[in-house]
Amino acid sequence: MKKVSLEMGSGGRLMQEFINEKLLPLFKNPYLKVLHDSALLPDSLALTTDSYTVDPIFFPGGDIGTLSVNGTVNDLVVSGARPEYLSLALIIEEGLEMEILEKILASIKRTASRNRVKIVTGDTKVVPRGQADKIYINTAGIGHLVGRPRPEKIKPGDRLLVTGPVGEHGLAIMLARNNFRMSSRVRSDCGPLLFLLPLWKKGVLWMRDITRGGLATVLSELAGKIGFPVLVEEEAIPVSRALKGAIEILGIDPLYLACEGRALIVVKESEAKRVLNILKKQAPSRQAAIIGEVQDRIGRKGEALLRTSSGGLRLLEPLTSELLPRIC
């Protein structure tokens, strides 16, 4: 008997398979078919939803509350929408200390006002001890479009940008969960991407927040979507120093580690420098960088490639099943 495996929800290939083979045929409609981070509805509305099950619920740089607001806000932003209203559903395990719940609610309130969104409806369920792990949160968000992703316009020469160092959320969670006998300065990058909204008017063709599966998975998705190969330079991808040390010891690839406050942006070649300068002037994206470009000379259709610091070329596959902690 086939059973649901953890990997099916890991953001990797098995999840793609599940969506494409089970969900899409069942709920078939023109809004779902697009499979963007949000559904683009009539009257320039965008709608998105996400559930948060991160373990541990508090981690360096954030908690499940900040994550549940930022994650949904970011999904709207990268779809071209200004987030306006959020719903909030809590599934709480019996016995959770009230003080912890209040702390999470305070995080939610703080993060919502920072993002200028209102929480306008919600739901609270408590399940018997052991039937959930402390607390799970679902949020849905709605907003009006101020821009529109145009992946069909992407062509060779267009530049790829990341808004900051990659992998910090994934590593912070791994370290918080596991006893690696390690201690690190790495903190989650969990944060809002609201500051990217004005860029939709500055030659940005596509954005995606880099979450589960990391930068490599997003790049591979992009390459699959646009019909051209993409090539990024390892040397150009920002990675913080503390993260560099930790990944060496753990033997993990930073390009597959999740972020919760970074995006990959595709910009018209002619506008790339200008967009980069705008990003660099803002605190959350001070370390933004142009990391590569859409290709027509190197690679095959649909391939995401990395030029390593040693000068070799390597394929970036989407994340495959591995032992991954629950990170969002």
Binding site: D253, L306, R307, T308, S309, S310, G311, G312, L313, R314
Partner: peptide, 9 residues
């Protein structure tokens, strides 16, 4: 060898 893309080189 693979991660640095050296094999084809």
């Amino acid at each position: 060898l693979y991660r640095s893309g050296l094999k084809p080189l």
